[in-house]
Amino acid sequence: MVKREVVGAHYGLIDWLYQRVTALVMVAYTLVLFGVLVANPGMDYSAWRAVFANVPFKLLTFVFLLAVFLHAWIGVRDIFMDYLKPVSLRLTAEILAALALVFYTGWAIHILWGIK
């Protein structure tokens, strides 16, 4: 049985963990992308396109972007909780941020799987 209390503790622990795991995913992807750029200096369009047309790299890029969006969600939510005290204002800001990130997720899919 799920027993949640308004004043209960530890609900933030999973967010804390997501924040750290997504950070490590971003560090790993940053290093991989850096390696790709160093190994292929001066890429033209077709070479650059080929990097992202490669399915494993495309999926890796998608996982990176999802990590960015989830990390950003937890981060901006923390900022809103710190500075936006009226509940109506905070809820509005959180809904707008969440909608933006869902929009970005769709956009990322459109970009990555639209590569011709």
Binding site: W48, F52, Y104, W107, I111, G114, I115
Partner: peptide
């Protein structure tokens, strides 16, 4: 996202 899109969409 704008930069990634522009860099990949077409020559």
């Amino acid at each position: 996202l704008v930069l990634t899109n522009a860099s990949l969409a077409s020559p």
